[in-house]
Amino acid sequence: MRWLDGKNILSNRASHIFYIGPIPEGHIVRHRCGNPGCVNPKHLLLGTQEDKLQDARDRDRFARGEQHPSAHLTEEDIRAILASDEHRDILAKRYRVTSRYISMIQRGVRWSHIVVDHLPEKVRVRRQLAGSGQGHHKTHLTPDDVRAIRKDDRVQSKIAADFNITRQAVSNIKLRKHWRDVPDD
């Protein structure tokens, strides 16, 4: 709707401003009733975008699996992928998706509502070890290497070259995105 100053405004925001009061910067109007078109001031409350996303999760409003508009695979396909011992490149060609997508399914990153109950034992173990960094199948670093990387004040490209890792890996270690459980001595 068009507001007093001639600018367009969502009707729920207009209702909140008119009946309840101004909307602080960085806040949005949420709906207690869960109806996005509702303008009843008794149903409106302020919150953040994170609050709104949590409301959607609580109400199971996110389309997932086969109900997602861009879904290419079915739940049956996912179960077959998880049960297969074939390489992900072969599976990717068969199901007409990328090898990376097959990997994400196998690791439980995609289709997690199905995958969690069907994860192969090796993936479950890898997930349990993932917090340590040493559980990753490609790592060659030790906890002492991680401590040395964190203490090293040189540019990341030099550190990366010395430890045979990427600059991004150095950054992730220094920011404690990876190897979080390794304490500094």
Rank of each mutant, 00 (worst) to 15 (best):
Asn12Tyr: 13
His140Ser: 09
Ile81Glu: 02
Arg88Met: 07
Phe163Asn: 04
Ala56Lys: 15
Arg110Ile: 06
Arg79Ile: 14
Ser171Val: 00
Pro183His: 10
Arg110Gly: 02
Ala83Glu: 12
Arg64Phe: 09
Asp184Gln: 15
Arg147Trp: 04
His72Ala: 14
Leu91Cys: 05
Asp181Lys: 11
Ile81His: 02
Asp51Gln: 13
Ala63Met: 11
Phe62Ala: 09
Asp58Leu: 14
Lys138His: 10
Ile20Glu: 05
Gly34Asn: 07
Leu4Cys: 06
Thr142Ala: 05
Arg154Val: 11
His43Ile: 05
Asp5Ile: 06
Arg147Ser: 06
Gly34Ala: 07
His87Thr: 02
Pro41Arg: 01
Asp152Lys: 09
Val29Lys: 08
Ser157Ala: 12
Tyr95Met: 08
His178Asp: 03
Met104Arg: 15
Lys158Val: 14
Ala160Lys: 14
Pro69Thr: 01
Phe18Ala: 12
Leu129Pro: 01
Ile28Phe: 02
Val115Ile: 11
Arg110Gln: 13
Leu46Asn: 09
Gln156Leu: 06
Thr166Glu: 01
Asp55Leu: 12
Thr139Ile: 07
Val125Pro: 00
Gly34His: 10
His118Leu: 15
Glu121Leu: 15
Asp58Thr: 13
Lys177Val: 11
Val116Leu: 09
Lys52Trp: 05
Arg180Cys: 03
His27Tyr: 15
Asn8Gln: 07
Ser112Thr: 15
Ser11Ile: 04
Ile159Val: 14
Met104Gly: 03
Arg107Gln: 13
Ile20Gln: 11
Asn12Thr: 07
Arg147His: 03
Asp55Ile: 14
Pro36His: 09
Gly135Glu: 08
Thr166Tyr: 01
Asp145His: 15
Cys38Val: 06
Ala161Trp: 01
Arg94Ser: 02
Ile165Met: 07
Gln106Lys: 15
Lys177Ile: 11
Tyr101Met: 10
Asp185Glu: 12
Ile90Phe: 02
Leu46Glu: 06
Gln106Trp: 10
Arg32His: 14
His16Met: 13
Ile23Asp: 02
Ala14Met: 14
Gln128Ser: 06
Val97Leu: 07
His16Leu: 03
His16Pro: 03
His27Gly: 00
Arg150Asn: 05
Phe18Cys: 03
Thr142Trp: 05
Glu50Arg: 14
Ile159Leu: 07
Asn40Asp: 15
Arg127Trp: 00
Ile17Glu: 02
Ser103Leu: 09
Asp181Leu: 13
Ile81Phe: 00
Pro41Ala: 10
Ile159Arg: 01
Val115Ser: 08
His72Glu: 11
Tyr101Ser: 12
Gly37His: 09
Ser132Cys: 07
Gly34Met: 07
Arg61His: 08
Gly21Ala: 01
Lys7Met: 05
His87Asp: 09
Glu86Asn: 12
Leu44Ala: 08
Arg57Asp: 03
Gln106Asn: 02
Asp51Ile: 08
Phe18Val: 13
Val170Ile: 10
Ser15Asn: 08
Gln49Leu: 03
Phe163Arg: 12
Val97Ser: 04
Gln54Ile: 15
Ile20Asn: 11
His136Ile: 04
Ile149Gly: 00
Pro69Met: 04
Leu10His: 04
His31Val: 05
Leu73Met: 06
Ala80Val: 03
Arg110Thr: 13
